[in-house]
Amino acid sequence: MPPASPPHKPPSLLIVPLTLDSLTTPPTAHHLTLIRSAISLLLLPCGRRIYTPPLSLRISISAPPASPQAPPPSWQDIHALLSTLYMAAAQEAWRREYPVLNVDVVFDGGDDDRWLADIPDGAHAAVVGRAEDQAELAGVNARRGKNGLGHLRFTVIDDEEGEEEEEGEARLTTVGSKADVIYQPGREGVQAYDCVALGGTFDHLHVGHKILLSVAAFLARKRLVCGVMDASRLARKQGSSQMQPLADRIAGVRAFLRLIRGIHALNRSTTATTQDLHLDVVAITDDYGPTRDDPAIQAIVGSLETRKGCEAVNTLRATNNLPLLDIFTIGVVAPSSSEDTPSSDEAQQIAAKISSSGIRVFLEGKAK
């Protein structure tokens, strides 16, 4: 029998399995409390130290198979679900003064929990959940033992544990959380494309980036093109001394897209398997990149901040006699502005820190 992971070493990767009723309904208060409690547990031993590799929280989503008659999850459903989960985690990390916590939301994609059985011992991973989840982890650990790997530790978090969100507490949301799309004539309602594009700096990959990348991966049937801005355009960015090298940013995007490959299987409009999505993660030196001249690209995904840039892409493609792109717009990280939860100074500060520039400024302060 292989040895269990050393009990005295705190985990650097904490896994939170969440089972939802469906992918078209919001997570429950229990789910969000579990996420907040897990972050508290993960950050408790570290204080404010910055670790390399960074401390990570992985939220693994599963849901019962929908009946053939049930409507499949749309890209808006996936966007809303990801926004809720990522925002809950990001806000809790900020409240604990650790905005560099790496958070990933992944979908099982029909693979059940087999991925847990393959996590290497060097990842120093542990799992949190309710008491009834221990039986499932016992099966995972049995498979890990057969693979010569140590057992994953399990920590029980009761429903009552964790800090509940206080009434009137500042919350984050995504501006335009209903999302939006501009279809080209004749393509109204399309939910999947052979080739989808997006672009950005993707510096210190944060929750806003990950929502953007996840929605793009959900929409892509065969190929996903992601342009990563060259450093020559970024020298004047706030906190530029902590800007990641281009190679690191490209590697981070590629690693994340590989991690979330299960999202590809959720879109019933795609018939390909999760392994069929080809990833083109390339450096770009302007706002257009491959969208300038690639006739195979059919759609582009951006944020409210970059929507005008997406429209400029179509203007250029029209000039070059190329097919125009459907434009998908997702929300950006911002304070909630609903009537029952007005935005506040704290929420404004949280939103600023979750941005790439906010993270760079935080790291600059740590480097002094």
Rank of each mutant, 00 (worst) to 15 (best):
F218A: 02
E167Q: 12
V190S: 13
W94M: 11
I59P: 00
A347Y: 00
G189Y: 06
G145K: 13
L279Y: 05
A125Y: 05
H151D: 15
S338W: 00
L279T: 06
L43I: 09
I50K: 12
P11W: 04
V333M: 00
H124P: 00
I157V: 15
E188V: 09
I119W: 07
G129V: 03
C195I: 09
D104W: 13
E132Q: 14
I59L: 01
V228Y: 03
P11Y: 09
A251K: 14
T274P: 00
R261T: 07
G239M: 09
G331D: 01
V361T: 14
Q69G: 01
D230N: 13
A351T: 01
L13P: 01
L44V: 08
A93K: 08
P245Q: 07
A299I: 04
W75F: 12
L205R: 11
E92C: 13
R233W: 04
L14I: 08
G208K: 07
V156F: 02
T173R: 07
P3F: 13
P295N: 11
A126C: 08
L81M: 09
I359H: 03
P45A: 08
E169G: 09
V228F: 06
L18F: 02
A93L: 04
G252C: 04
L172Y: 10
Q134L: 14
G289C: 04
Q349F: 02
A265N: 11
S60Q: 08
L259E: 12
H8E: 14
Y183V: 06
I59W: 00
V196M: 08
S74W: 02
H79W: 04
K178C: 06
I359Y: 02
G262K: 06
L363N: 01
R233P: 00
D112M: 12
G150W: 10
